[in-house]
């Protein structure tokens, strides 16, 4: 049923067709993920590098992780009024904590001896940040970005509830109309999009994480893809974030 819905040519054209909805979903995802990264990476680098404001950022970020997506989306819709802006604000707000946590944890995770050696050799603060801490933070930082993108893809689907476009429309419209094939097709499309984006980001992560670090991760007796996998990133980032608060 779902398959026949998906392959029906009628569903591949028009303003409510799959291509249009897919592009909408991608656009929201891209905008929110970029905006969140632009905010969270510099903040995470600053806090991680200087150690200043850690408690505030960590506490705030933890609270934000607990924010219910649907609650935030409906709240902002009622406060800011309808339209894409309120939805995009909600998406961005929800994408900030993972990136922030990943960046901060990445910097904190850098071996203390390595940072000490960098200082001892006469690197300035900036040189240390760019040449030592940032490259070492990349695996966890990009892990954070991957989490954020997944978060945004999922929340964009939820935001269809307040009228946002994207693939979530099929799901919720299908639900309202008791059109189960359409609903399930929407779910499958959203899931597929999430998986494809995650795969692409995993490849990117592979390409930009320095080889020495990948080898180091493998050397610790872990699988080759270890650094780039999620569960660890999530929990490691979370643990690092909490360290400051407890």
């Amino acid at each position: 049923m779902t398959l026949s819905w998906l392959f029906d040519p009628a569903h591949w054209s028009g303003t409510d067709g799959i291509p249009v909805r897919l592009l909408q979903h991608l656009r929201y995802t891209l905008v929110a993920a970029l905006a969140a990264t632009a905010v969270a990476v510099p903040l995470g680098l600053f806090v991680g590098h200087t150690g200043r404001g850690g408690v505030l950022v960590v506490g705030g970020s933890n609270a934000m992780r607990a924010l219910p997506t649907l609650g935030l989306v409906t709240f902002l819709f009622l406060v800011l009024g309808s339209g894409e802006v309120s939805a995009l604000v909600a998406l961005t707000v929800l994408a900030v904590p993972p990136v922030l946590a990943g960046t901060y944890a990445g910097i904190q995770d850098t071996d203390a001896g390595v940072v000490d050696a960098a200082r001892g050799m006469g690197m300035t603060g900036w040189q240390r940040l760019w040449r030592v801490e940032l490259p070492n933070a990349l695996p966890l930082l990009l892990g954070g970005v991957r989490n954020a993108v997944l978060q945004v893809v999922a929340t964009t689907a939820v935001a269809a509830y307040v009228g946002l476009g994207g693939l979530g429309r099929f799901l919720l419209d299908g639900l309202r109309a008791f059109d189960y094939p359409k609903m399930v097709a929407g779910a499958v499309l959203v899931a597929a999009l999430a998986m494809v984006l995650d795969l692409l980001l995993a490849l990117l992560q592979r390409a930009v994480v320095p080889r020495g670090l990948r080898l180091a991760a493998r050397g610790r007796g872990r699988g080759p893809a270890r650094v780039v996998e999620r569960g660890r990133t999530e929990v490691a980032a979370d643990a690092a974030m909490r360290e400051g608060t407890e």
């Binding site: 997944l150 999922a154 689907a157 939820v158 399930v184 779910a187 899931a191 998986m195 999620r230």
Partner: peptide, 11 residues
């Protein structure tokens, strides 16, 4: 873990 929650509930 990549599957969005709403999609998961429905599938």
């Amino acid at each position: 873990y990549t599957v969005p929650s709403l999609a998961f509930f429905v599938v």
